[in-house]
Amino acid sequence: MDKAINKVKTSFHSELESCKTSENLEQLRIKYLGRKGQLTDLFNQFGALSNKEKPKYGKTLNILKSDLTASYNNKLATFNSDQGSDDKRDFSLPGYALPKGNIHPLEHVTDEIKSIFQSIGFSVAYGPEIDDDYHNFEALNVPKHHPARDMQDTFFIDSDVVLRTHTSNVQIHLMENQDPPLRHICCGRVFRNEAVSYKSFCLFHQVEGLVINESSSFAEMKGTLEYFAKEMFGKDTKMRFRPSYFPFTEPSAEVDIWNDKLNQWMEILGCGMVNPNVLENVGYDSEKYQGFAFGMGIERIAMIKYGIRDIRLFYQNDKRFLEQF
């Protein structure tokens, strides 16, 4: 029985191969798949088999049948398409030359970050790029003549008005206008008076987060940011929190993710529990309320994500660069 099955199979396929016309193919169909064809013969032989053998060959025969039918149909389809069409147009011509538009890479990354945080209930807030010293520094626990001011080189409009050095000014505006609970991210453009080079520009973009209520803890901050990092960089992302210093948070941390290619930790964001002084500055009861804040540079993340080595490419708007996104 095995032999008979194999023989039908091999001879069918070799004959199918040599079929050149639809007449040939039709003859082949009658020979094998027809009502009196070889396949029917095999099924007839099957009927004579013992009950013990039946299950095994039943399966084999069914497979053979579907194999032969499918192969025949495929071949038939190629004949039809070759011959059925008398359309003489050249379909190998290129398609219409449509313009190729793109979203800026920084927008892509911002959107992605936004949607990750929106998915866990963060609203998005915006605020002014030019602000007073109070909202950019003092309310954030960075008094005048504090060494922490050296951490951010500032552009001044006048002695009291600055180009914001971070989006944290939005946090202050938010808290001034709203009572807890808060669960927001703020995003936008910030400015630093730094020499322009491949790794720094006079401006960049940030996304910051702020969560204030009666119970959000350091552990929750870790959970939130781990969720973010895994959504953003993949679920196997290895990360670490290490102690750092920001005037507006206490305790403060910086978060690194492990870069396998470079074999080193890469800093992606800063975070911490909102400093009680900041809460008091906006009139929140720091005994009752607590929460955390975090912030990250979008350029930095985009550079890691897309392997961009020169930050200036983002603002040059070279079509050859933009077209890649």
Binding site: K114, F117, Q118, S119, I120, G121, F122, S123, V124, P181, R183, V211, N213, S215, S216, S217, F218, A219, E220, K222, G223, T224, E226, Y227, R240, F241, R242, P243, E250, P251, S252, A253
Partner: peptide, 27 residues
């Protein structure tokens, strides 16, 4: 901060139960 810093930030088990209220994520 001193206590956490010395205890080790990495030794603090993250919490995934977000304590915040449900809210409409506006933009």
């Amino acid at each position: 901060e001193e206590i956490l810093r010395c205890y080790g930030y990495d030794n603090i088990v993250p919490s995934y139960s977000f304590s915040s209220q449900m809210q409409y994520a506006e933009d």
